[in-house]
Amino acid sequence: MQPMSLLIVTCALFVASHLVLSHPFRDGLAGRLGERGFQIVYSVVAIATLIMVVQAWRGMPPEPPLWTVGDGLWSLASLIVLFASILFMGSLIGNPALPAPHAARDAAAAPRGVFAITRHPMMWGFALWAIAHIMVMPTPGQIILSVTIVFLALVGSAGQDAKKARLMGESWRGWAARTSFVPYARQLAGGAPWRDTLPRGHALFGGIVLWLAASWAHGALGYMVAGIWRWVG
């Protein structure tokens, strides 16, 4: 199989396995295996298909970029990754979308910080991270990989809305009514104040640390030098 075909097939398998196990097959498997057993199966499949994608991507031959990437595009992409890092770190605390026993309690709280921006900050963090990679690494292989991540993150979030509404009932529907799927949609529509979107301390400082560490590791591991490390050090 040609490298590009292999990458497309493994990306499709990665997406399909996630969506099938997360939604149509989830209840049946969880009923037979138990919640813990299902999580083990889900994790094994996710890791195995991810390894397949990574190996296929590493096997891609060198490709010329589809457009020229200068400092301006690198600066914009770096800011997008910083924002994505803040969304991700903020999503780790008080997130009703996570499988936590206190999800209903979290959903009853007023949306603040990253949750006032979007009710799926973790998934939007992944999607924005992938979009930034397309901007500065515009090769066909990278675009296919990044589009796969964007698709899985956003389609998976939409599916999560439906699943959470079924599992949590009114508590999730109330949360969904007070939040937006698209970042800043409620603020742009005049339905919520902009001051609510200011990130909390753990999101802001954690996001900055994650951004600095991840962009530093990008160059340290032999990939393209990223973030502010392109201009300092």
Rank of each mutant, 00 (worst) to 15 (best):
T10V: 01
L198G: 13
A213F: 07
H23V: 12
A103C: 05
P62A: 13
G72E: 11
G59L: 00
F205R: 13
P193V: 10
L152A: 13
A127C: 01
R119N: 05
E170C: 14
A177N: 06
V20M: 15
E35C: 00
M137C: 14
M89T: 12
P62Q: 08
S146E: 10
G31Y: 00
I47W: 07
F83H: 06
L87Q: 08
M123P: 01
R230F: 04
A107C: 04
A226K: 11
G159W: 01
Q55I: 10
A109K: 12
R119T: 08
F181Q: 09
G34W: 00
Q55V: 07
C11H: 02
L50M: 12
L212V: 15
P121C: 02
A226R: 14
F151H: 04
V232T: 13
V147I: 12
F205H: 11
P199D: 01
S17T: 13
V81C: 09
S180Q: 09
P138G: 04
L82N: 06
P183Q: 00
A107I: 04
G125M: 01
W231C: 05
I117C: 04
I208D: 10
G191L: 09
W67M: 10
I86S: 12
R178D: 03
W216H: 14
V45N: 07
P101F: 02
A48P: 00
T49C: 06
H133P: 02
A217K: 06
I131P: 11
P65Q: 01
V147Q: 08
I143H: 13
L188I: 13
A46S: 15
L154E: 06
G159F: 04
I144N: 07
S180E: 10
L212R: 11
W67G: 09
P61Q: 00
A220E: 09
A185P: 10
E63D: 07
I8K: 15
A30D: 02
K164D: 07
G190H: 05
T68E: 13
G141R: 06
P99G: 09
S85P: 08
L50T: 06
I149F: 07
S85K: 04
T10Y: 00
V182I: 10
V41G: 05
F38Y: 02
R26P: 03
C11T: 03
A192L: 14
F14V: 03
W211G: 11
L19A: 15
Q142C: 14
V225K: 14
L221D: 10
G201T: 11
S157E: 04
M60P: 12
G34L: 00
V232D: 09
